[in-house]
Amino acid sequence: MSSLLILNGPNLNMLGIRQPEIYGATRLEDVEAACLKHSASLGHTCQFEQTNDEGALVTMIQDARGVHDAIILNAGAYTHTSVALMDAIIAAEVPTIELHISNIHAREEFRHKSYIARAAVGQICGFGTHGYILAIDAASGLFENS
């Protein structure tokens, strides 16, 4: 049984409320329930976390080493600003999938740059909250190939 850590960064606690025209109407609690159910159906355990604090995300990534087999990270706005998160992913040596609900490449220019992408095994963006399920499937594929 493999273990997934799904991390959500700033403002994702406002999912379903904040800019539903971009992020949809699904609440983070509903995303969590779907992720736990889908992970279990594939035989994986799943821990789901959200914080608005960059340092807490760094700590959670570091603490994943030796505990979790993969990380799915929706770093929100920290994607475009945080060298610390990139460094934590590299140091933790846990395969990390970068996830975004919206297509960051079709949005404002500043959102096109991702520090996370440099350290991630792949990126999923633009599929709404269904991207979480796609990321779980991608992580499952990593487990099968290791």
Rank of each mutant, 00 (worst) to 15 (best):
R18E: 12
I71F: 07
H100T: 09
Q62L: 12
S3M: 09
V58H: 08
H68R: 11
A138Q: 05
N11K: 06
D137R: 09
T129P: 00
T45M: 13
I72G: 15
H80G: 06
A139Y: 10
I136S: 04
Y23C: 03
Y23K: 00
C125Y: 05
N13M: 07
L5P: 05
K113H: 12
S146Y: 05
C35M: 09
G128C: 07
I136Y: 01
E98Y: 09
I116T: 07
A91N: 03
A139M: 11
L15C: 04
L36N: 08
Q47A: 14
G76N: 06
T51P: 02
R107Y: 12
Q123R: 11
L142I: 14
G66R: 06
E29A: 14
E144Q: 11
N8W: 07
F110G: 12
N13I: 06
I90K: 13
L99A: 10
M14Q: 08
Q123F: 06
E32Y: 03
A34W: 05
T81G: 08
A139I: 07
G141K: 05
C35Y: 06
R107H: 13
G24I: 03
L28G: 02
A135H: 03
E109A: 12
Y78E: 03
N52Q: 06
M86N: 12
G66C: 09
D137I: 00
L36D: 06
L15V: 03
V58Y: 09
Y78F: 15
G16L: 06
